[in-house]
Write a protein that binds this DNA or RNA. Structure first.
Lengths: 128, 128
DNA sequence: CGGTATCCTCTTCGATACTG
DNA sequence: CAGTATCGAAGAGGATACCG
């Protein structure tokens, strides 16, 4: 439903119905690879398309392009194109809006880490 | 990819690969209606299946049942069955683990609210 | 009342190939 | 190098019906 959610909230908002704030936020980063892209752009700074793809070795070319396009459309990421002797280089970087999602992503990281620790403890108890 | 993500992180974790903490957290509440269910169970307390469905008037019976089952499997929600003169009543409530997601959900709500306000301001500027 | 199974449709996503 | 188009397979999700 990832993209369905994005379309859904966009439509609601266009119809001046703003009663979907949490769903809207969720739709910002629930696309495939989006959290990781944001996370890396925040920590490593501006990156080229290929550099991002190398970080996400299981991401297909098509999917990555699509996700970056959506992130740009949502104002979380900027795209800068550069031509150096007939070679196109495209640089992506996080906007302030995109960076403002980091506290939430960090919170998700730390919740997940704690939760996984707790689950492991439970399992160890069971195994004893 | 909602459910795909849930399966993906579950598999990684079973293979003792815990390098997916944020994705794991995301998979906890990115199913259809899950944030809203958690939100309501937190604010309104224990509820019966039908009460939850009435709150989510566009949710189909099947989807709601499925999402509640997943939430229970993930330890975010508990299910309590009660038989009163041949009538089954099922009560759902949030576990402490489920409740511990609320700060993240609140953060998503407030990020979304701020962002939507900012976008409206931008539009007003454009229209002037 | 609450849960599940079946069927059917629309969307997602990967592989591949083609453009500038 | 980066982006897009096409095609096919898998998944999501609604409608409906049936079980306890």
């Amino acid at each position: 439903m990832t993209d369905t959610l994005r379309k859904y909230t966009r439509e609601k908002i266009q119809q001046k119905d703003f009663d979907c704030a949490k769903e809207y936020t969720l739709s910002m980063f629930s696309g495939k690879y989006k959290i990781v892209i944001i996370y890396h752009l925040f920590h490593d700074g501006t990156m080229r398309f290929n550099a991002i793809q190398r970080l996400l070795d299981d991401a297909t070319h098509k999917m990555l392009a699509q996700q970056l396009k959506e992130l740009a459309a949502d104002g979380l990421v900027t795209r800068r194109e550069e031509m150096t002797n007939n070679r196109k280089a495209v640089y992506y970087s996080l906007t302030p809006t995109g960076a403002s999602l980091m506290p939430i992503i960090e919170a998700m990281f730390s919740w997940g880490t704690n939760r996984l620790d707790a689950l492991q403890l439970e399992n160890n108890f069971k195994l004893q």
